[in-house]
Structure formats: structure tokens, C-alpha cells
Amino acid sequence: MEQYWINRNGQQSGPFDLEQLRQLQLDGDTYVWYNGLEDWEKLESLPQLVAQLQQPGEPPTVPPAQADDNVDVTPESHDVAMNEENEEPEVSVPDVPTAPPAEVPAPPAIPATPQQAVPVGIPVGIPTGMPVAAPQAAAQPAPAQAAPAEDKCPPTNLVWAIITAVLCCLPLSLVAVFMSIKVKTCWEKGEAEQAQKWSDRGAWFIIASIIAGIVVQPIVTFIPLLFS
């Protein structure tokens, strides 16, 4: 279960689970932080979370792992997964409505950069599930199992679509530009799977049109020569 910390009018509180967060009726300018965010973010800049808050009862949709970016970070995500196991006892009791933890967890301070927020010297593998462990695990980059954040949106491929359309003389790939818009609109509606599908479609469309261009180019160039 994902845990969230909030900061309203300078008052920091948490951790909350999604259900508790819903009951809090947050404004768009409430700062939110959870495992996977680099720093505090205003709620309104996290459309994915807003979408989750609006559909009660549904589990948070974790987008499919992003093909491109995640390859590089796989070893790190293993580490984080291990930390996650250690937290298990603490994470699994969010049913108790409040009961603020004895030791206040320390997500990054509002103006602080993530580096400053990392508590140095606290052993990572504390087995007892102290609440300190949660923000500390999060201070490391934890892309694989983090909640869907803005930067988990599948790639839009917009640059490649424009390059193939404008530089390669393949106006058909304007369809791929359209697909990259679809990626974003689906993502902001909270449809992570649809967004991923459109992203893949766009990528394949671009690849296909480049291959088609390479194949058709000589044909188009040489056939007129035969008739002339």
C-alpha cells in the first residue's frame, strides 16, 4: 500500500494511505510527497494521484514498467524491493485511522533538495519497520514500484514523430504526432494502460514508416528511370 505525506499551510502530516487521503479533501495546492517523488509536489501537478483520489475503492493503477528508462535502474530497484519487505509490518496496518507514529517520519523538507534530505548514517535494513525507513527508502531513486507519478508517463515519441514527418518527408507519421497526444490525454485521465498502448503504437508507427520510406525510396527513384 502506498503511503502519502502531506503539507498543508506549513503543517506536515502523514503517512496516509489512499483512502485516508480521500477523506482529507485536499486542495490542489496541498503539497504531497510519496515514495518515488523527488520532492514535494502540489497535488494539482500530480494528475495521476488526483484521478486516483476521484475513483474510490479502486486500487492504484501501477503503469506497466517503462521499457526505455527502467532497464538502466533494474539493480537499484531490487535494493528498494528489499527495503520494502522490511517495512511490511508497518505498512500493513494502515486501517488504524491515525495513530501518528512515535517518531515523525522525515520526508524532504519543503525547500530542501533530495540530497539534503537523505538522513546520513541511519542503517537501511532496520527490520522492525520503523517509520523512518519509509522516507529513507524513498530518498533513493525508486522508480520501479513507485506510485504513478507524472514522470512515469510512457514516452510520447513526439520528437521522433516530428523528425520523421518533417525531416524524412514522411507526412504519414503525422499520425504518430496524433498518437503522442493520445498518450498524454489518456495518462491524465488515469488510464495508464491505454497511455502505454498509444505510446507503443506511436513508436511502432514511426519505425514502420521509416522502414517503409527506406524500402519505397529506391523503387520510387528507379521506376521513372525505366520508363524514360
Binding site: C169, L170, P171, G213, V216, Q217, V220, T221
Partner: peptide
Amino acid sequence: PKCITLQL
């Protein structure tokens, strides 16, 4: 390369 679209 000449533009495919133009030639077609």
C-alpha cells in the same frame, strides 16, 4: 534522396 511524397 528525393522526396517520396513529391514523386508519388
